[in-house]
Design a protein around this nucleic acid. Sequence first.
DNA 1: GTCTATAATCGGATAGAC
DNA 2: GTCTATCCGATTATAGAC
Lengths: 207, 207
Amino acid sequence: MDKPLTKPSIREINERVILAAAESVFAERGFSGATMSMIAKRAGSPKANIHYYFPTKETLYRAVVARVLTAWLDAARSFDASDDPKEALTAYIGAKMDLAREMPLSSQIYASEMMRGAPVVQDYLETTLSAWVAERSGVVRRWIAQGKLKPIEPKYLFFMIWATTQHYANAAHEMATLEGGPLSDEAFERAKGQVAQTVLFGVAAGG
Amino acid sequence: MDKPLTKPSIREINERVILAAAESVFAERGFSGATMSMIAKRAGSPKANIHYYFPTKETLYRAVVARVLTAWLDAARSFDASDDPKEALTAYIGAKMDLAREMPLSSQIYASEMMRGAPVVQDYLETTLSAWVAERSGVVRRWIAQGKLKPIEPKYLFFMIWATTQHYANAAHEMATLEGGPLSDEAFERAKGQVAQTVLFGVAAGG
DNA sequence: GTCTATAATCGGATAGAC
DNA sequence: GTCTATCCGATTATAGAC
């Protein structure tokens, strides 16, 4: 967007390091629970330096959330990979599952944001996400009309997919405890497959 | 447990009021974000009084979480309502959905607890919940052996049910924004039915 | 058991030297 | 651009009168 290929300036490098540190602290402790000292320590620079790059705690938080939304929207595109419900849903669920596994911190921040009433992402909910849901709901309804899916309410299907996939990030600790350790790659792939299969059989026409 | 029928003592009454206030504040702001002043104000008594009943913020938080777990376990019992998978799962999903709708604050507190790494409920995860999952996994495997369900991993089924049902509490704000207002009772009942149907068709044998 | 006043601490933010 | 020292408001917790 604003970066050519050359010149990873000092500012850029430092911002990256700070954002990564902030993301992990915000995920663990929530907005209020996170402290600038903690973020500074994890970023490896003195507290005042954090304030030099991000004037206030809220500025920093907003920057972190912005990155989360970008990743979210990228994954959302996989829904459009195919016009066949089986393929589209499998791709979408897979992408969301992978996102939860690869960026668990983002997922937790998003969840916290929602529970706080979306003070920062309200605008995103009302514009980008609403539009996405409206459009894809149309696609789902078309599949229903074509007899490919059961007559379901598309929104509740999306809620279910979001819930289940994000749960693999939000409740990673719970799962790890119940499994006796973090989900292995193999276990995760099995889970991914089962989620996709369950949803597909759950909504496929002719049950 | 420790209360006969008579004598709702002053202590009991006040503790109840304080716990209710604390629950709502902890749900909205998380542990660190909640302040004792906020809780006191919502409970309608001076801050020092809160400390009289609950010496520290953490004591109070633990008491709130204890109530959450009780409600959780009550709902879990509905799984045992029947030995038929269709009935058992429908009852269980319904109970969890109702719980999310009737006690959204508890659900949010539980979710926050998990994201923080379960500092308070770790013991519950390792004992009570682990045992519950182990036992019910056995039941599910029996259903599979009887040809009533697809050969799935029971744990991932439970994860999916927990995720989806809790999502109706945790993401209530997101849903409300997308729906243009809070889910009506009718919409919620439709959602409940669709979730149950999707899961049932999703795991039923012979897809 | 209730409440006002206050102690003690913590955390966000800033000043200003380097 | 970096960092030490510090300010100041907010927050947990307590003392002690009623």
